[in-house]
Design a protein around this nucleic acid. Structure first.
Length: 264
DNA sequence: AGGAGGATGTGCT
DNA sequence: GCACATCCTCCTA
């Protein structure tokens, strides 16, 4: 079993007890380690979004699955922090959130993108591109690199490696976690659920964090004016920005920038 | 009971 | 840039 990285420690439930807007930037550079069907993948998180909901002392979030209150679908978002809310997007993609905020208050951080730092083979199999990618024997903590076999396909370049977990659907697929069987899995204890285990590791120090409006969320001028999306500036695995339905118009009316700004 | 609309990715124009 | 896949959830009747 490989370790997720130098100087990292397992996340504790208390690390995730604050509201999503506070927790979200602390998950950048963290590792999500999953073992599904015996295959381990470690993802270094490079892009996240905060989602609140409707709850006591909470900021109302009309872009959240929890905006209407507690339902069967979003129940995990109300639960104990540190579990993973896995939902089905567009009938196709299983997307992964880290539940945070106090129990009884809806909140989660959507893991939008990551870098596969271990288990490239398993991730590539899940992404359906296994013939192209092979891992060489990587030293402990060494990032995956473009292999000779990839070099035979110059038209591909490093894009398939970069794209393995670039975007929430790809991230979920690379992780192996799926809706509905893995919804609610505990990333603090690492307890097995439906043949899967998940662990969250924290502790990487980042020099800079970028913020901006969330991607693809239907127009909610009030919330999109606030930076709910966080990413590691310059990281190639961060997904492209796009407006949600009606959001561009709403943002234009408020003179809200779309790409976001880099904070210190 | 029926239907609209997704916290998206892919492929074609 | 735009259509489409595919299915679940919640709203309306």
């Amino acid at each position: 079993m490989s370790t997720p990285g130098e100087g990292l420690r397992r996340a504790r439930r208390a690390d995730l007890a604050a509201l999503p807007l506070e927790v979200a930037p602390t998950l950048l550079g963290a590792r999500l380690r999953t073992v599904v069907g015996g295959a381990e993948v470690i993802l270094r998180i490079t892009e996240v979004e905060a989602y609140h909901g409707k709850g006591v002392g909470d900021r109302h979030d009309p872009g959240s699955h929890a905006r209407m209150g507690r339902t069967a679908r979003n129940a995990t978002m109300w639960g104990e922090p540190g579990h993973l809310y896995v939902y089905l997007s567009h009938g196709i993609h299983s997307c992964v959130n880290v539940v945070c905020g106090p129990e009884g208050v809806a909140g989660g951080v959507l893991l939008r993108a990551g870098e596969v730092v271990s288990g490239v083979d398993a991730a590539a199999v899940r992404r359906g591109i296994v013939p192209v990618l092979r891992t060489n024997s990587l030293a402990e903590g060494e990032p995956p690199r473009i292999t000779p076999r990839m070099a035979i396909h110059p038209e591909i370049g490093g894009k398939q490696l970069r794209d393995l977990a670039r975007g929430p659907g790809r991230f979920g697929q690379a992780s192996g976690l799926r809706h509905p069987q893995h919804d609610g899995i505990d990333a603090i204890t690492g307890a097995e659920l439906a043949g899967a285990r998940a662990e969250l590791w924290l502790g990487e120090r980042l020099a800079d964090i970028a913020t901006g409006p969330r991607v693809g969320v239907a127009g909610h001028a009030g919330t999109d004016a606030f930076p709910w999306r966080f990413w590691i500036p310059g990281d190639p695995t961060v997904s492209p920005f796009r407006w949600g339905r009606g959001a561009a118009e709403a943002a234009a009316a408020l003179d809200t920038p779309g790409i976001g700004s880099v904070l210190e």
